[in-house]
């Protein structure tokens, strides 16, 4: 009985570690290219996160199942074949069912193959553990990756464009924030004069903004990390 509880606990641990403690893109800094490149809008961020997670889960299951069959000497090519086939399947499905999203993500869908998170998990985890643990690990890592993409893309889209754009999924109009006009300006009328109060920080939505946002997020993480460490010493 206690054995079962222990096992459940360890499964839960495999799941939760990927979300905060070993968050792949914000703590371990793996898979940076998609993290920065596709986070121009929340829709793209979520789409990328789900696509990468799907590949991660499938390849983790497959590699964990095949771990005794794949010869040790050629394991890396075998993993690459497995991962690349799942990526191709995901790419074809995206092109068929969410064509606009596939078009916006462009080459970053095929580039999931070289996302270090997936090969890293295969090499460090799935080829040693059983299927259930591998699934939990992949779910956690995938969720962590998706959440960090969501965080970055939220900052970039809301402050950059002042709207939320889900048009890639077939939604007709962009969601504008209530007080802000369609040109992403916040205009306040004061004594009959129109004052432009805020205009979207467009640079956040462009390439340089991605670097600024992730730099600031990492600094905030470092700040909290050092604070907790100080507490432990005290």
């Amino acid at each position: 009985m206690s054995n079962m509880i222990k096992q459940e606990n360890s499964l839960l641990k495999e799941f939760t570690k990927g979300i905060i403690k070993e968050n792949p893109s914000l703590i371990i800094l793996l898979g940076l290219c998609p993290t920065l490149a596709v986070t121009t809008s929340i829709a793209n961020g979520i789409g990328m996160g789900i696509a990468a997670s799907a590949v991660l889960i499938c390849s983790n299951i497959m590699i964990s199942l095949l771990k005794n069959y794949i010869p040790e000497q050629v394991r890396i090519p075998a993993y690459i074949v497995v991962i690349a086939s799942f990526v191709t399947i995901v790419e074809m499905l995206m092109k068929a069912y969410v064509p606009l999203l596939a078009k916006t993500l462009g080459i970053f869908v095929p580039l999931i193959v070289v996302n270090c998170i997936i090969l890293g998990r295969a090499e460090a985890f799935a080829n040693k553990k059983n299927v259930l643990e591998s699934i939990m690990d992949a779910l956690g890592m995938g969720l962590g990756f998706t959440l960090s993409l969501l965080l970055i893309s939220m900052i970039r889209e809301i402050f950059g464009y002042c709207w939320i754009d889900f048009r890639n999924y077939g939604v007709k109009e962009v969601l504008t924030l209530p007080v802000i006009t369609k040109d992403s300006e916040l205009i306040i009328e004061l004594f009959g004069k129109k004052i432009e109060f805020y205009k979207g920080i467009f640079v956040l939505a462009m390439a340089p903004g991605a670097f600024f946002v992730i730099g600031l997020i990492l600094a905030v993480i470092n700040y909290f990390k050092s604070k907790f460490e100080d507490k432990e010493i005290l």
Binding site: P208, A210, F211, G215, L216, L218, A219, N222
Partner: peptide, 23 residues
């Protein structure tokens, strides 16, 4: 550099400034 920015964060900010020039 402020302590939380040491290492990778400041590298990203620098990269952002470089990207601004290229942009």
């Amino acid at each position: 550099i402020p302590k939380p920015f040491k290492g990778v964060p400041i590298a990203f900010i620098t990269a952002g400034l470089m990207a601004l020039a290229f942009f």
